[in-house]
Amino acid sequence: MNILKKIQLPTGILTWITLIAGVWLVFNVPDDFQQGGAVKILYIHVPSAKMALLSYLVVTVASILHLWKRSETADILAEAATSVGAAFTAMTLASGSIWGKPMWGTWWAWDARLTSMLVLLILFKGLMVLRHSLDDPVKGARATAILAIIGAVDLPIIHYSVVWWRTLHQPPSLSAGSNAGIHIAGPLLTPLLILTVAFMLLTLYMTTVKARQIEARRRLDALETARMHADE
């Protein structure tokens, strides 16, 4: 876990630089001809959604590693990425809802994309509750890892929801392939790409901070348990 200590400060600095650059661009590029100023919301919404999915992918991979290698480092990473992912998912849903009110005339619709993202938030919260609901932390970690792996089925559902179903939600904003997704003009694409990078760094930074907090808490719990047994 020493690597977390080494990367935290440089990641934090880079996050600030890219966030400031991205937000400055957001407020200095033209508005969208259809959405007007509301397009500025999407510069937060789209990167948040990407990071929510990336975080769950990290949780899934870390959970597999934990079950396979019995790695506590992987379990700490899974727990950290769960908290970070929940924050990004909440931001995605909130920013999407605030964008949807002036654009769609509604705060919410039971659309495939929105519903599957809500399921993702419930999954993140469920993972947190399950881990702490079992008295034995080892069993809690195993049960959480199993649930995380099962819940990973939501990731392709979220990603392909706008392709598989006729949805209110627009097709992907950023996609591989020239015919996929929406064509975004250059001046509007640049801040989106910069903020996506900024949010990746933010995700890494927040995961680092949370992982160090979790590791410190586990070390303290272990010391206190050892002290209790020594006193007996």
Binding site: G36, G37, A38, K40, I41, I44, S95, I98, P102
Partner: peptide, 10 residues
């Protein structure tokens, strides 16, 4: 339309 309150809120 003025979307400033929505943008600010986000």
């Amino acid at each position: 339309n003025d979307y400033t309150p929505y943008v600010a809120a986000v």
